[in-house]
Design a protein around this nucleic acid. Sequence first.
DNA 1: CGGAACGTTGATAGCTATCAATCGACGTGG
DNA 2: CCACGTCGATTGATAGCTATCAACGTTCCG
Lengths: 254, 254
Amino acid sequence: MTSELILAAEKRRNVADIRSAAIARRLGSLLMLTPGETEFLHRVGAGPMSLWAPRSLIEQPAGNHASPRYIISGWAAQVRELNDGRRQLVQLVLPGDPLAPQLQIHHRGQTVQCLTMVQTVDGAAIRLAARDPANFPGIAAAVELAAARDRALLLDQVTRLGRQTAYERVANLFLELHYRCLPIGLVHANGFAFPLTQECLGDLLGLSVVHVNRTLQLMRRQNLITLRQGRLTLNDMPALQAAAEFKPPVLHRS
Amino acid sequence: MTSELILAAEKRRNVADIRSAAIARRLGSLLMLTPGETEFLHRVGAGPMSLWAPRSLIEQPAGNHASPRYIISGWAAQVRELNDGRRQLVQLVLPGDPLAPQLQIHHRGQTVQCLTMVQTVDGAAIRLAARDPANFPGIAAAVELAAARDRALLLDQVTRLGRQTAYERVANLFLELHYRCLPIGLVHANGFAFPLTQECLGDLLGLSVVHVNRTLQLMRRQNLITLRQGRLTLNDMPALQAAAEFKPPVLHRS
DNA sequence: CGGAACGTTGATAGCTATCAATCGACGTGG
DNA sequence: CCACGTCGATTGATAGCTATCAACGTTCCG
């Protein structure tokens, strides 16, 4: 076996690790989990997985007794569509996140859509663990905190769309994504995989494709970011911060 | 006692009823409560109340052990402010709603602000009841459903700000408010008290005061609405619906 | 009466959308 | 191998929605 093959195998193993560890990392970043809980979440992440094609819609079984699903790789989004074809990506769903909140109200025109190839695992065990504080003291709290953080990010999204310019929206989103990708191990040297097309960015930020393109080019000319070949690097976090005013949600110990 | 005085007294009693009943109506509109549960919520609504002046900020005690507070009269809003003074009303809080979700993450620049005089009551009993399914089978489910509905309305807000024009935003918001005021008994003949200034409307819908004004006047000229003296009447719901595409969240029986 | 808060109106500027066309990358079938 | 179509990114020209600035009217209240 040549060293290249060994390296490739090593890399595959690392990738697999990151995938099966996404949930454990995501929840573990919110508060301290016991080793047993971390191990438990790793096993959930390594369980039988479903594969979804890019652009496919993930059907959410209605009712709150359906088991939740967690993304372990790929990006998805909660999408709302208007009758005339306009669409809004309401919130991005990244590895370690549940596809939808535990109790979701049915809404015509609302779906979960894959932006890349997506792998999901069944989260029924997590829901059960969250209801068994004796054995899993941290998981219940972490699941709650995760939901609260997602709501805080939703408020960020409202503020972005309501009160920020195109330039600020893009900068703010990039900082949010950096903040979210960091704990799940997807960031290296301030860069991370960025699979969104400019059209998706527009639908997420309430902008037209053309204007997204022009805004990105401006940020490139100012050397704030590098975005090519599906990878985004934040070259100047202070400048982005100054432009976007992104404030990460603060978790308080309770 | 003249008949005028009798009528006035009757009216005061009705108003008091509506206030103490706001929580019961709000939660009872989501699913069937037992008579005991309804009575329980009435007593909560009639409990000791706090009074908040217009424009005052309601401090949220950090931590998830603080008892939640419910509004029983008046309007408030969750507000985010940017460093340069821009502000965004993220979500309106109406009678029967909790001031904030059960577990709230601290965020610099986020507050709850009264838009009118506001009366609140302590919701600790509701939280306890929600954890005692044996005695209160419906309340736990209703509280959860209410939170899910609020999240759905937040997604509406995102879509409004991201993908609708000023005219559509205003129409959509008016339909949402009608939808929310109906179950708590505030709507009479398609009209309800509407205490928002045009500046607040702008901060809520991501528009400037001037443009809010012009949009309202257009809708008045088209005879879609009547808005004067703090009262809003929707004269042409079908036309508003056609313009705004408001879809009320659908609760499914589980 | 003066001032503050809110609403209204006009003029102008500016941000962003829309339309149209081009370009490169990629995969497919002839 | 090349023609072809599709998708995404890019660019230019233009239109349009909305913000900003400024001024004025109205109501209310001390």
